[in-house]
């Protein structure tokens, strides 16, 4: 048994047309024993960035608290909010700091990046547990159901999905992937980001 699978949980992020979405399950377990069905793995970083932290649950909390501290200090010093690309670099370097005794988390980042012209473009990225960044154009997955998520997402995702279509795609991908994984599930939460608003919806899914 890998330590990455000890508590279970999965996250996925997808790019749409002028929007991004990020979704996770809500289960916290100790191997096959379920402990909580309200365990948050996706956290807001700014009004335009979310970070998903699947992996060992103790490190979910530790990293969330650490990212919050570092982002707040950045905001104070810079007097502006952090951009998704910059935040991705922060995530990467925070993880690489622990190269030889890593946090057992594979973060997923979703946000709307401000371009020099003042418009916004969707941004997603994922890293491994030591901070190697992967910038994808379509979707990124992580967690115990990542192989299943890859399969379903590969089949359902299309280019230039509008907000509602993207929501449907990511929701179906998540729900169907976690149904095939014993260590993920117990409800799903989806965050949909456009340039000026965030929509958060929780889905029931199979509660067994």
């Amino acid at each position: 048994m890998s330590i990455m699978e000890y508590n279970g949980g999965s996250v996925i992020a997808m790019v749409g047309k002028n929007c991004v979405a990020i979704a996770s399950d809500l289960r916290l377990g100790v191997q096959s024993l379920g402990i909580a069905s309200n365990f948050q793995k996706i956290f807001p970083v700014t009004d335009r960035i979310f970070v998903g932290l699947p992996g060992l649950a103790t490190d979910v909390t530790t990293l969330h608290e650490q990212f919050r501290y570092r982002v707040n200090m950045y905001t104070i010093k810079e007097e502006r909010e952090i951009e998704p690309e910059t935040f991705a670099a922060l995530v990467s370097s925070t993880l690489y700091e622990r190269r030889f005794g890593p946090y057992f988390i594979e973060p997923v980042i979703a946000g709307m990046q401000r371009t020099p012209s003042g418009s916004y473009k969707p941004f997603i990225a994922a890293t491994d547990l030591i901070g190697c960044l992967n910038f994808a154009k379509d979707f990124v997955v992580a967690g115990t159901a990542s192989d299943k998520l890859f399969g379903v997402a590969e089949g359902l995702w299309e280019e230039d999905l509008g907000p509602e279509d993207l929501f449907e795609t990511i929701s179906q991908t998540m729900l169907n992937a976690v149904d095939r994984d014993t260590n993920s599930g117990w409800g799903v939460v989806v965050h949909l980001l456009t340039k000026d608003k965030v929509i958060t919806r929780t889905l029931k899914g199979r509660m067994d």
Binding site: N7, L28, V30, L33, G34, I35, A36, N38, F39, L56, A57, T58, T61, T62
Partner: peptide, 24 residues
């Protein structure tokens, strides 16, 4: 519910040890 790893979960009910397999 907190375990030795530092996992924290806010829950309506909880158990530790062998009791958890029956009680939960």
């Amino acid at each position: 519910w907190i375990d030795y790893l530092g996992t924290l979960a806010s829950v309506p009910f909880a158990a530790h040890g062998y009791g958890s397999y029956f009680a939960l």
